[in-house]
Simulated scan of single mutants.
Amino acid sequence: MNKQATKVVVIGGGSGISVILRGLKQYTEHISAIVTVADDGGSSGVIREDLGMLPPGDIRNCIVALSEAEPLMARLMQHRFKSGQFAGHSLGNMIIAGLTDMQGSFDEALANIHDIFAVTGRVLPVSLDDIVLYAKLEDGNVVRGESNIPNVVKWNKTAIDKVFIDPADAKAYPESVTAILDADLVLIGPGSLYTSIMPSLLMPEIKTALCQTAAKVVVSMNLMTQPGETDAMTVGDHLDVLIDRIGADTIDYLLVNNQTVSSAAAERYAKKGAHLLKFSAPERSRISALGIKIVEGDFLEEYAGYVRHDAAKFSQQVLNLVDTVRYIPHAKY
Rank of each mutant, 00 (worst) to 15 (best):
residue 305 G to H: 02
residue 266 A to N: 15
residue 274 A to H: 01
residue 261 V to H: 14
residue 246 I to R: 03
residue 250 T to R: 01
residue 228 G to K: 00
residue 310 D to V: 12
residue 312 A to E: 13
residue 289 A to K: 14
residue 239 L to K: 10
residue 311 A to C: 07
residue 257 N to A: 10
residue 327 Y to H: 14
residue 315 S to H: 05
residue 296 E to D: 06
residue 329 P to F: 00
residue 239 L to D: 05
residue 329 P to A: 11
residue 320 N to G: 15
residue 238 H to D: 09
residue 321 L to N: 10
residue 305 G to E: 01
residue 218 V to K: 08
residue 223 L to E: 00
residue 243 I to N: 11
residue 249 D to N: 11
residue 281 A to S: 12
residue 227 P to R: 02
residue 227 P to K: 06
residue 262 S to N: 12
residue 313 K to R: 14
residue 217 V to E: 00
residue 249 D to R: 13
residue 270 A to H: 07
residue 290 L to R: 10
residue 251 I to W: 09
residue 312 A to I: 13
residue 275 H to Y: 15
residue 219 V to M: 12
residue 302 E to M: 13
residue 264 A to W: 04
residue 312 A to L: 15
residue 314 F to C: 05
residue 247 G to Y: 08
residue 242 L to R: 06
residue 249 D to K: 14
residue 227 P to Y: 01
residue 249 D to L: 12
residue 292 I to W: 05
residue 253 Y to M: 00
residue 222 N to T: 09
residue 262 S to M: 04
residue 270 A to W: 07
residue 221 M to D: 06
residue 247 G to V: 02
residue 295 V to A: 11
residue 255 L to S: 06
residue 217 V to A: 08
residue 298 D to Y: 04
residue 307 V to H: 08
residue 213 T to S: 07
residue 217 V to Q: 12
residue 260 T to P: 04
residue 221 M to E: 06
residue 279 F to I: 09
residue 296 E to N: 12
residue 291 G to I: 05
residue 322 V to A: 02
residue 319 L to H: 07
residue 270 A to K: 12
residue 326 R to W: 07
residue 267 E to N: 07
residue 218 V to L: 09
residue 286 R to F: 11
residue 267 E to Q: 09
residue 290 L to K: 11
residue 302 E to A: 08
residue 311 A to H: 04
residue 249 D to V: 07
residue 219 V to W: 06
